[in-house]
Write a protein that binds this DNA or RNA. Structure first.
Length: 469
DNA sequence: AGACCTTTTCCTGTTT
DNA sequence: AAAACAGGAAAAGGTC
């Protein structure tokens, strides 16, 4: 028995070696999640993870049930442990589609990546517990992640939230949440999945405790591709009088399909870019802000989803009430109004119009506002991070000359859109973004690349864009 | 409080 | 002709 176990374990290790040697792991910067101050995450790798040391499973790292100390271990357990690390064809193309469209294998690929990226102990994550497709994964709440993976569920949850944020710009999500409930095919399929999930005894229905407004995502058939290039993201501010937004179908169908308030698909985003941006959820959900009003999502178009960093705070301060904001829009306030002679052509005042501010009750009493220039929040850093991110490079921005720091906007408006989302500014355009880029010439953060359209070059004052930095 | 910084917005004109 | 570029001007709103 002991011999067969040893052999089985050796085989496992061997397969892992083979597996790892073929593993095209994304760079650590891909979907990089900033480390929160309270160290919920393990220390992220400072250099590309050494796959051998990180993944070269030794016997002691196998689940305890698979070690020789536990001779009672069933062969099934060994097989399960083995299967958890079996290479699967196409497992790693998970970053090529929207998470809502992931197959089970892509989910597995994502988990594999997350394990490596955050240096999670592989034996702590039972992939079999995550035998779900992407749609299901996206609907899982933080608690559900924790139930499936007690020690690292949080990280996986935040990680998928991050991936969702990134994916919004690049891929079309499954129409499940975009289409109205009148679409029975998708709705029913998703509802069935959801019900199945609800029937799992370890999962609580996430919709139970939802405030009404959580249950009525306003989808509007918008897809990530729509957003990418052509559209400004919509202002989904929901005024108090709009609560709850009117669903276009029965509450029941909506509520049964809505991801829970803590599901990564539901929440997210703000951002340090390092932390990513807003998600499709922004387009689907009414807005919220925590009552402290001290968020970056002041103003403009709302941020119904919270980032994982916000999430951390949320969970840290669980007494914080989440409530709808009151929109005291001053969009039409006469801030820039100037007396013009009768008959003079209508002309907008120069300069930046006052922000359309959404004011929370708390903000009214405390005067707290969101920040504009937090660290790591500059445009050039944002652009640099897009270049580092395989989900945006080369699709929306790409290196022309990696070594010299020359890059090109492939989808200029998409980049502007992302920047606008990051800054909560739905009116951002490439024209405006490029003006800001041109200011960098003087500061040597960027250098001009003559006769090349949409092409820029990092200057000596820019840091962090080189491979060896 | 106020200087300073980093955009954002608008604009005119030029180049590709 | 349209898109991109260049850069002045003014203002918002953040940091220090």
């Amino acid at each position: 028995m002991a011999e067969s176990l040893t052999q089985a374990i050796d085989d496992t290790t061997l397969d892992l070696g083979q597996f790892l040697s073929n593993f095209p792991i994304p760079t650590p910067t891909q979907f990089a999640i900033p480390q929160p101050s309270d160290a919920v995450f393990p220390t992220p790798p400072t250099s590309p993870p050494n796959m051998t040391s990180t993944w070269g499973l030794v016997k002691s790292e196998l689940p305890s049930s698979c070690t020789l100390q536990s001779e009672q271990a069933s062969f099934t357990e060994l097989q399960t442990a083995h299967a958890n690390y079996m290479p699967i064809q196409n497992q790693f193309n998970w970053c090529n589609s929207h998470p809502m469209n992931w197959s089970y294998q892509q989910v597995r690929g994502f988990l594999t990546w997350a394990v490596a990226e955050y240096e999670l102990p592989p034996h702590e994550i039972n992939f079999e517990h995550f035998r779900v497709n992407g749609a299901k994964l996206c609907m899982m709440s933080r608690e559900e992640f924790s139930l499936l993976c007690p020690n690292y569920g949080d990280i996986l949850y935040l990680s998928i939230g991050k991936v969702l944020e990134e994916a919004q710009y690049l891929y079309d999500p499954t129409p499940a949440f975009c289409e109205g409930p009148s679409d029975t095919t998708m709705s029913e399929s998703v509802r069935a999945m959801h019900e199945e999930m609800m029937n799992m005894d370890f999962i609580q229905a996430p919709v139970d405790d939802l405030p009404m407004q959580d249950l009525f995502p306003d989808c509007g058939g918008i897809t990530a591709d729509d957003i990418d290039v052509n559209d400004k993201f919509e202002d989904v501010n929901v005024e108090l009088s709009d609560f709850p937004p009117s669903p276009t179908a029965s509450d029941e169908s909506y509520s049964s399909m809505s991801p829970g308030p803590t599901s990564p698909y539901y929440c997210s985003s703000e951002s340090d870019y390092s932390s990513g941006d807003r998600t499709l959820g922004n387009l689907f959900m009414p807005r919220y802000e925590t009552s402290d009003g001290d968020s970056d999502h002041d103003s403009y178009g709302s941020s119904p989803r919270r980032s994982y960093t916000d999430e951390l705070h949320m969970y840290d301060d669980s007494d914080k009430e989440v409530k709808p904001t009151v929109d005291f829009s001053v969009q039409n306030a006469p801030i820039n109004m100037k007396i013009k002679p009768a008959g003079a052509p209508e002309r907008r005042a120069r300069g930046r119009p006052r922000k359309v501010r959404t004011v929370t009750e708390e903000m009214l009493t405390t005067g707290k506002r969101g920040r504009q220039h937090s660290k790591g929040n500059h445009l050039w850093e944002f652009v640099r991070d897009l270049l580092k991110n395989p989900s945006t490079n080369p699709k929306v921005i790409k290196w022309e000359d990696r070594r010299d720091g020359i890059f090109r906007f492939v989808q200029s408006e998409a980049v502007a859109n992302m920047w606008g989302r990051k800054k909560n500014n739905p009116n951002m355009t490439y024209e405006k973004l490029s003006r800001a880029m041109r200011y960098y010439y003087k500061r040597q953060i960027l250098q001009q690349v003559p006769e090349r359209r949409l092409v820029y070059k990092f200057g000596p004052a820019a840091t962090g864009w080189q491979d060896n930095e």
